[in-house]
């Protein structure tokens, strides 16, 4: 009885956490991976990896959970990208950009270093503040400002090269 009620409470907590974070995390994973199914994989992996050990804590969901989930999704997405590249190297078919300008822009973003890509997504697409990005990535705000500037300049140069700017 007691065990069942504890399980029910845990289940409710899990449902609440999933409902709260799945949308933003899926959007973030989608921007990194560009594939809905892979994004779902990354988010699922992040939830399972991170939350199962922490849900027993009394203060769950805790303050830093959002940042930890974003980090876990990022790591899972990076792992999936490496796996995807390995698959591509083995000669299997991976859908490529169709040549539309928007897709070309997103492709350029996805070709950035993972840290640059992460900051561009958080700052430009997700409209997060430097402080929020700092909490998620662990970088200080000065570094974020400089990295963002370098990333945007790099994107601008590649867009010019592609004739889009």
């Amino acid at each position: 009885m007691n065990k069942d009620s504890h399980r029910d409470r845990t289940e409710k907590k899990a449902e609440a956490v999933i409902c709260e974070y799945e949308g933003p995390l899926l959007r973030y994973a989608m921007q990194i991976l560009g594939d809905n199914s892979l994004a779902q994989d990354a988010v699922e992996k992040a939830f399972i990896q991170l939350c199962k050990n922490r849900i027993k804590e009394t203060d769950f969901p805790y303050e830093n959970l959002s940042a930890e989930l974003y980090r876990a999704v990022h790591n899972a997405a990076v792992g999936l990208i490496f796996r995807k590249k390995a698959v591509r190297d083995r000669g299997r078919k991976i859908p490529l950009a169709s040549g539309k300008p928007e897709e070309e822009v997103m492709r350029i973003v996805r070709e950035l270093d993972f840290k640059e890509q992460q900051i561009v997504i958080f700052k430009i697409f997700e409209q997060k503040s430097n402080l929020e990005i700092s909490r998620i990535t662990g970088m200080n705000e000065e570094t974020i400002v400089i990295l963002l500037y370098k990333s945007v300049i790099k994107i601008a140069a590649r867009l010019k090269k592609a004739g889009l700017l």
Binding site: E22, L26, R27, M30, Q31, Q40
Partner: peptide
């Protein structure tokens, strides 16, 4: 480009 991304599901 971000707005033109294919609509992803907001739910698992």
């Amino acid at each position: 480009a971000s707005k033109a991304e294919p609509k992803q599901t907001e739910r698992l």
